[in-house]
């Protein structure tokens, strides 16, 4: 299995689910690169999805450009084993996920042409569990 990113230290082993039908108010614009891939739907983005996106982007771009990953899977998601009765406490952590809200920028690219960035983001978007779109830097006052 490839190494997925997880936090080094956490305050608590398990977390509540919490509300996730909110819109992104931060991390919703291109900050580091020239182009970005923006999520249009909410999800808990698994660490393996982020890794799959990174791998497919590097495979497509070879050694060109720089990829910025703007989300980090810091939310532990627990899951009860199959054929288990309800109760007996909260289950063990199954995977780690990043909280993604509509508008969150998932990946950014720098040092590539728009056509190459579009190609890379198209391939990354195929690996994502939500609808995504490519955006550029926004106009600042």
């Amino acid at each position: 299995m490839p190494p997925y990113k997880i936090p080094k230290r956490v305050k608590h082993r398990k977390e509540f689910r919490r509300v996730r039908d909110r819109k992104a108010t931060k991390g919703n614009y291109v900050a580091f690169g020239e182009f970005g891939l923006q999520a249009l739907e909410p999800c808990w983005l698994k660490s393996n999805c982020i890794e799959a996106g990174r791998v497919t982007c590097q495979h497509f771009l070879k050694r060109e450009g720089k990829l910025f990953i703007r989300v980090f899977p810091d939310k532990p998601i627990s899951k009860k084993p199959l054929e288990t009765r309800m109760g007996k406490g909260k289950a063990e952590v199954d995977y780690w996920a990043a909280r993604v809200k509509p508008g969150t920028v998932l990946f950014e690219l720098a040092g590539v042409s728009e056509a190459r960035a579009r190609g890379a983001f198209f391939r990354i978007a195929m690996k994502m569990p939500v609808r995504c779109r490519m955006i550029g830097r926004r106009i600042e006052a």
Binding site: P3, K5, I6, V10, H12, F72
Partner: peptide
């Protein structure tokens, strides 16, 4: 270099 953990590895829990 940082923050890469093998699958199945668990992070250190500060509260514990």
């Amino acid at each position: 270099a940082a923050e890469v953990g093998a699958d199945g590895a668990t992070p250190e829990v500060i509260a514990e």
